[in-house]
Computed example of a mutant assay.
Amino acid sequence: MNESRLLLAALSLIASPAIAGDLDLRIIDSAGRPVGDAVVTVRPAGGVPTGPIRFPWGTTMVQQNIAFAPHVLIVPVGATVKFPNKDKVRHHVYSFSKPARFEIKLFGQDESRSYTFTSAGAVALGCNIHDEMSGFIKVVDTPYATKSNAAGQARINGLATGTAQVTVWHPLLKGKDNEMLINLPIPGSGTVNKSVSLALRAAK
Score class of each variant (00 low, 15 high):
residue 57 W to E: 02
residue 32 G to Q: 01
residue 174 K to S: 05
residue 52 P to H: 11
residue 120 A to L: 01
residue 134 S to Y: 00
residue 39 V to Y: 04
residue 109 Q to N: 07
residue 76 P to K: 12
residue 190 G to C: 14
residue 173 L to M: 10
residue 142 T to Y: 01
residue 103 E to R: 07
residue 159 L to T: 07
residue 19 I to N: 13
residue 23 L to P: 07
residue 198 L to S: 15
residue 100 A to Y: 05
residue 165 Q to H: 01
residue 131 D to C: 05
residue 124 A to M: 05
residue 61 M to C: 04
residue 88 K to I: 07
residue 123 V to T: 06
residue 193 N to P: 07
residue 167 T to P: 00
residue 149 N to Q: 00
residue 193 N to A: 13
residue 94 Y to P: 07
residue 19 I to V: 15
residue 166 V to G: 04
residue 18 A to L: 13
residue 100 A to H: 08
residue 179 E to W: 12
residue 193 N to K: 15
residue 86 K to A: 15
residue 90 R to P: 08
residue 90 R to V: 08
residue 126 G to C: 08
residue 36 G to A: 15
residue 30 S to P: 08
residue 110 D to K: 11
residue 133 M to Q: 09
residue 75 V to L: 09
residue 31 A to I: 00
residue 124 A to D: 06
residue 106 L to F: 10
residue 6 L to K: 09
residue 185 P to G: 02
residue 64 Q to C: 11
residue 146 T to W: 02
residue 191 T to W: 05
residue 73 L to W: 03
residue 97 S to H: 13
residue 136 F to V: 10
residue 115 Y to F: 15
residue 194 K to V: 02
residue 110 D to A: 11
residue 104 I to K: 03
residue 123 V to Y: 06
residue 59 T to P: 01
residue 178 N to G: 05
residue 163 T to W: 06
residue 9 A to Y: 13
residue 40 V to H: 10
residue 88 K to R: 11
residue 204 K to W: 12
residue 10 A to E: 03
residue 129 I to Y: 05
residue 190 G to D: 14
residue 25 L to P: 02
residue 127 C to H: 03
residue 158 G to P: 06
residue 96 F to E: 13
residue 114 S to W: 04
residue 98 K to H: 13
residue 59 T to W: 03
residue 42 V to H: 01
residue 123 V to P: 07
residue 51 G to N: 11
residue 29 D to H: 00
residue 68 F to V: 09
residue 23 L to E: 09
residue 80 T to R: 12
residue 84 P to A: 11
residue 51 G to E: 11
residue 62 V to N: 02
residue 179 E to P: 06
residue 160 A to C: 02
residue 185 P to T: 03
residue 67 A to R: 00
residue 155 R to A: 07
residue 199 A to L: 10
residue 97 S to M: 13
residue 22 D to S: 10
residue 152 G to Q: 11
residue 35 V to Q: 06
residue 137 I to P: 09
residue 161 T to P: 00
residue 113 R to C: 05
residue 159 L to V: 08
residue 51 G to Y: 12
residue 9 A to C: 12
residue 65 N to M: 11
residue 136 F to E: 09
residue 91 H to R: 10
residue 70 P to S: 08
residue 151 A to Y: 13
residue 7 L to T: 10
residue 138 K to P: 04
residue 186 I to L: 03
residue 171 P to Q: 04
residue 58 G to A: 09
residue 120 A to W: 02
residue 200 L to R: 04
residue 130 H to E: 08
residue 126 G to V: 07
residue 188 G to C: 04
residue 13 L to I: 05
residue 84 P to Q: 11
residue 189 S to P: 04
residue 150 A to G: 14
residue 121 G to N: 00
residue 177 D to C: 05
residue 144 Y to I: 05
residue 105 K to H: 15
residue 14 I to P: 01
residue 180 M to Q: 15
residue 137 I to D: 08
residue 185 P to Y: 02
residue 132 E to L: 01
residue 173 L to P: 01
residue 168 V to H: 00
